[in-house]
Design a protein around this nucleic acid. Structure first.
Lengths: 339, 339
DNA sequence: CACTGCGATCTACTCGAGTCAACAAAACGC
DNA sequence: GCGTTTTGTTGACTCGAGTAGATCGCAGTG
């Protein structure tokens, strides 16, 4: 029994405990843990490392965050993390953040502006380093963030809000791709199952559908507007099928809507693609496993997430805001009529 | 122009700025913001509230967390947040946490033990108040948490690890429900498309399938083991269909596997439920919109999430760990042969 | 008038870690 | 031998907020 008995602290182990155990000052512990900013003698470093291991010391990230002004955390707001498209986006953003050593606070807005603003305010209070907004977003929200010196990235479809970073896809070009493909199959009455967006009928997908028809000299087919999920697509489908002149092809503004649409078509005793051809937008896995497999416009979700995160954590602070628009790609499967 | 000109601070606004602006001490600002622990005169409170509004003060949650020892954050580890079942669970946990004023750090383990442990360590460093583990989880991991005084909840299928809180469903009873329903349709050769678990062939679903067959005096059908997603179900399906004596019904251990299974069956030129009946486990929305709609054993995901979160943030600190097992419910649709 | 009592407010310390200025000791040059 | 650099270590201050304990002013009482 010696007088230099190890004192096992009861609470969580702090830097101070390590310092005492190793017989050095707290500064040295810091230097060892962070490898800087000052050098430490090898012998001393060994003592400290020993003490850390013995005591099971784990630096308190909260304290570090307070001192450094960053807790290496990003926030993400999406409408509904159980919707496969948003789920994939969330997964991609989480991955991109994790790869850079950032953690991700994920929240659902349920498409409610209040909820979204509450989350944004919460993020601001928590001093996150950046926020990826893929939800409702009205400009007023963003002011909240400015005061808190938090960088936002808009990761939604229509890139609005000049002065803020944004990442999106070329909705119009993508939609044209799909509709032109349907036209290529000989269809002349092509309907649209459109989602509901904040700035209605200003959506690129709708414009793309319209322009593709116009360019081919075709009349505008029927249009049904409903929410962006399976149930919305189902309801929109029922309305489109009830049209006096039924369309022979339908473009859906999301894969989820297409899934609901397929169900509505089947329930009407019709088959895809024989009676009605279908194409949609997003390129989620579910489109691949539906019956028939959906021809869909694929968004480069992983690249988009990567771009959004790098705009937030990059060294590009105080640079001019960037607007990145990614191209889409048509994934041809069976629902359009291809073999 | 007066000498008591407002000094607009350049950095983020702190309590000190508010105090100066309102002509009071920082303590009073604190009392106003938190409504305690000491009373403040109405007139003073008004001054402070004014200053807060004018300056746009937002208390720094990180500093608060350091002082209070809690940052009102929970961690969640799931295998893959883009898998619909985990996505739903994530959504439910996020909701349950948000309702209690907690934020949620979401991470994916991709079924890799190292990744999971890295996340757990990261959670520990960040001093989260609790961790919901719905992933690989070997006991060694949990030791990490003990040292950090963080409460874990195991939210996986098979409730293991005595000494830790856990929330799960009665896998065996659920599987029996489904298989017995298939038996009720007159099937005698019932196969199993089983997922791959850490403790293989100890999974309740497999046991339930076996016991239901045994109880009905039926022979064990063919069994194919593969991963818990669409691709796994597809591969398992192909193997089951290649069996010398093809099963007339198949129970899949997850909805995702069933989706892949349906595809394999269709590609083999067979139809569901005429040639092969299918039932599965989980009760995700995708099962409702598949073709044909899947008969599935529904897990009460929202209740489970609620239970998990309340075990973490509850006042039940230092109580004996709880093990909650929820019952499942059979959702009958068309894939089993029901009209 | 002195004294208590009480409500309102302020001062000062705390949480745990980062880091700079200051300093001691060792190493070097001549 | 003495001055000078180098190397290693430390004490002390900081981040922003919570709150106990001290202090102040004022009303009520004997």
């Amino acid at each position: 029994m010696t007088t230099s008995e190890v004192h096992t602290p009861r609470g969580p182990v702090t830097r101070k405990d390590v310092a005492r155990h190793a017989g050095v000052s707290t500064a040295v512990v810091s230097y060892v843990v962070n490898g800087g900013p000052k050098k430490v003698a090898p012998a001393t470093e060994a003592k400290v490392r020993d003490a850390i291991r013995v005591l099971g010391y784990r630096p308190n990230a909260t304290a570090r965050a307070l001192k450094m002004g960053s807790n290496r955390t990003l926030g993400l707001v999406i409408p509904d993390s159980s919707n496969p498209f948003w789920a994939l986006l969330g997964h991609a953003v989480e991955g991109a953040a994790a790869r850079r050593g950032y953690a991700l606070l994920l929240t659902n807005s349920d498409n409610e502006l209040d909820t979204e603003m509450r989350h944004i305010r919460n993020f601001a209070a928590r001093q996150v380093d950046g926020v990826v907004l893929a939800s409702v977003v009205f400009e007023p929200d963003l002011v909240e963030l400015e005061g808190a010196e938090i960088r936002p990235v808009l990761l939604n479809h229509s890139a609005v809000a000049p002065g803020f970073n944004s990442v999106g896809v070329d909705l119009e070009a993508g939609a044209r791709l799909a509709v032109e493909h349907l036209i290529g199959h000989g269809h002349t009455r092509i309907g649209l199952a459109m989602g509901i967006t904040a700035d209605n009928n200003a959506d690129g997908r709708e414009a793309g559908w319209r322009k593709a028809l116009e360019a081919a000299g075709l009349p505008e087919g029927p249009l049904a507007r409903d929410v962006f999920d399976r149930a919305g697509g189902y309801a929109a489908g029922q309305r489109l099928l009830a049209e006096p002149e039924r369309p022979t092809a339908i473009f859906a503004s999301s894969d989820m809507q297409a899934i609901g649409l397929l169900r509505a078509i089947r329930e009407a005793g019709l088959s895809v693609p024989e009676d009605i051809a279908v194409a949609s937008f997003d390129g989620s896995i579910e489109a691949e496993y539906s019956w028939p497999a959906l021809t869909t416009v694929e968004q480069p979700v992983w690249e988009m997430a990567e771009a959004a995160v790098s705009a937030l954590v990059g060294e590009t602070r105080n640079e001019a805001p960037q607007h990145r628009i990614f191209p889409t790609q048509l994934r041809v499967r069976q629902s359009c009529g291809c073999p």
